[in-house]
């Protein structure tokens, strides 16, 4: 219920804000559609056909209607049926936005999920190790690497790895992934680069959480019971530490699912991020709107999943 409200608020906001922020007039839009040097009459006809000059609320109404029941576009030469959820029609590529998103989403999915698995495993293990060996050389080294990871953006590590791993040493083939059917291990380099950034973050989070948890009274109790240290750390300590991290994780993945823009750009992978970016470059408003809406949807969904999981993991939440 609340989530639906949030989604509506987001669509509303992006619909009203994006065109204004972009500073494009209806003439511009119509002009792009019409091609080179259109005359005033053609422009007016186009504007009329797509309702570019309708009041914004009316356009918004049409947009929402498209999402709920679908829409039909008249390109002048033929009519294109755009079934629900129809997020508009790109005048640049002559494609329905929904189609484009459905095309691109699996690719972004592959990038995000692969990287997520990597960074959780790496980040959490490094964090736990660091916390348990606090102050030792291992801890310091891990945290130094983590600091580097947090500070180095993907376009840096990405380009660097492309230059050395792929081109100079030729350890891996160049990243080539444009369809869900492709071998996912072609994505190994983007995974590592993206995961490096997040793993560093998660290592720090886990370390801090673990240090705090291991000072909790219930850890002392677990030791007082005579449990082996292994059980104390993993069953009692890690379980309590991971719960708040799970929240961050859900949101991070949700965010990435909306498009791993920098990673996709760096490795030229045609995912949602690329789509959105291209839309922005080309002032392709329907695409920008659609991509933003999709990203918002993923974040809201991720939030929902996190809330539900929290109840599963933490009985105190379940009972209150």
């Amino acid at each position: 219920m609340g989530l639906l409200l949030i989604i509506s608020a987001v669509t509303y906001a992006i619909f009203f804000l994006v065109p204004r922020a972009a500073g494009v007039s209806s003439d511009d839009i119509a002009g792009r559609f019409a091609g080179k040097q259109p005359d005033a009459v053609t422009l007016a006809a186009i504007k009329d056909r797509f309702g570019f000059d309708d009041p914004v609320p009316v356009q918004y109404g049409k947009f929402i209607k498209g999402i709920v029941v679908g829409d039909t576009y008249d390109t002048g030469t033929d009519k294109i049926d755009c079934p629900a959820p129809c997020m508009g029609y790109s005048f640049r590529t002559n494609q329905s936005v929904t189609e484009q998103i459905v095309d691109r989403a699996p690719i972004t999915f592959m990038i995000a999920l692969g990287a997520a698995v990597l960074w959780v495993i790496a980040g959490v293990s490094i964090g736990v190790l660091s916390a348990l060996r606090r102050g030792t050389i291992i801890d310091r080294a891990a945290m130094a690497v983590a600091l580097a990871g947090v500070s180095l953006p993907v376009f840096f590590t990405g380009l660097l790895s492309l230059a050395f791993v792929v081109h100079k040493w030729q350890l891996l083939p160049s990243v080539n992934y444009s369809d869900i059917g492709d071998n996912p291990f072609n994505l190994i380099l983007p995974w590592i680069c993206l995961a490096f950034l997040y793993a560093a973050l998660y290592a720090r989070l886990t370390r801090a959480g673990m240090l705090e948890t291991m000072n909790e009274d219930f850890i002392r109790t677990a030791r007082a019971k005579g449990l082996p240290e292994r059980t104390v750390v993993f069953k009692h300590g890690l379980r309590a530490t991971l719960t708040p991290i799970m929240t961050v994780f859900g949101l991070d993945v949700g965010l990435l699912l909306g498009g791993a823009i920098i990673t996709e750009k760096t490795f030229s992978i045609p995912g949602l991020g690329q789509l959105a970016l291209d839309g922005v470059y080309q002032s392709d408003l329907p695409v920008v709107l659609g991509a933003t809406l999709t990203a918002a949807l993923f974040i809201v969904l991720a939030n929902l999943v996190v809330d539900i999981l929290y109840g599963v993991v933490d009985p105190r939440v379940r009972h209150s």
Partner: peptide
């Protein structure tokens, strides 16, 4: 010593809420 803890010697703590694992 661990083998003795909980078996031969045991302890109860001040604040039973924080001394038990919440999950």
């Amino acid at each position: 010593v661990r083998a003795l803890r909980g078996r031969k010697m045991a302890m109860i703590f001040q604040d039973p809420l924080s001394a038990m694992h919440p999950f």
